[in-house]
Every structure is written in C-alpha cells, then in structure tokens.
C-alpha cells in the first residue's frame, strides 16, 4: 500500500483570526485581574469607602498602578473588540463595517489615552 502525503499550507491568520485568538488569551489573563478587582473594590472595600484619598493611597503603590494599567489595556481592548464582533453580526455592508471599525478604534484610542494619562498623572488635589 502506498501512502500519499500532501502538504496542506496552513492559511496565514488574518485579522479576524488574530482578534478571535486575542479574545481567548486576554480572557485567561483577565480572569484573575477583573475578578480580583471586583472582589476587592466592590465587595471587600465597597463603594462607600472609596474616595479621592482612597485612590491616592492605592496609586501610591506602583504595583497597583501596574495592576490598573493591565486592566485598562486588556479589559478595555477586550471589551471594544467584543462590541465590534457583536456589531459585525448586525452589519453586513462592507462600507458601514469600515465606518464602525474606525469609530470603535477611535473610541478605544481616546478612552484608553484618557485613562492612561490619569493613571500616570495620578490624583491631583482639589482646588
């Protein structure tokens, strides 16, 4: 019996494949980050004990700032990409999709930039 072998070229992952992978890999990272953030801030500390001083105290530690930077980078990118994937189910026109993709990209860029500036700048005193 002869065995026929043939090589099948694995298609190069396109943008949608990469975005599909990103959702799953970032999910694994976000589980400890987001669950930890929620359990600590909403359950253990609680919104009634959060104020400007609390944020200042928390951000005095570089570790928490890095934690929040990771949240900002991964959670928000995961969220906006998720919105994009849902909207792609509702929009079939290539042109409208393009507008939607750029709109969401700009939203992501602007909100991430605002968050990053605040995170680096830190808490400013009340005037």
């Amino acid at each position: 019996m002869t065995t026929n072998t043939r090589t099948i070229e694995k298609p190069k992952p396109n943008f949608e494949t990469k975005s599909w992978m990103f959702m799953r890999y970032s999910a694994v990272l976000l589980i400890p980050l987001v669950f930890g953030h929620l359990i600590l801030q909403d359950v253990i500390v609680g919104v009634h004990r959060i104020d400007l001083d609390y944020v200042a105290m928390r951000w005095a530690s570089i570790g928490w700032r890095i934690y929040d930077a990771l949240l900002l980078a991964f959670a928000f990118a995961h969220g906006v990409n998720g919105i994009r994937q849902v909207l792609n189910d509702f929009i079939q026109s290539d042109q409208v999709r393009k507008i939607m993709h750029w709109g969401l990209f700009l939203l992501w860029l602007i909100v991430t930039a605002i968050g990053a500036i605040a995170l680096i700048g830190g808490v400013r005193p009340i005037s």
């Binding site: 998720g82 919105i83 909100v111 605002i114 500036i117 700048g121 400013r124 005037s127």
Partner: peptide, 20 residues
C-alpha cells in the same frame, strides 16, 4: 460590562482631570 467600563474609565480619570 463593556458599556459600564467606558463610563468607569472616564469617571476614574476624574481624579486627574477634574478632581473636584
């Protein structure tokens, strides 16, 4: 969650932009 996250990033950034 994503919609809340947009609001949450913006309100937290008040500590720098609009602490009052």
């Amino acid at each position: 969650t994503a919609l809340f996250l947009i609001i949450h990033i913006l309100d937290t950034s008040f500590v720098y932009f609009l602490p009052d």
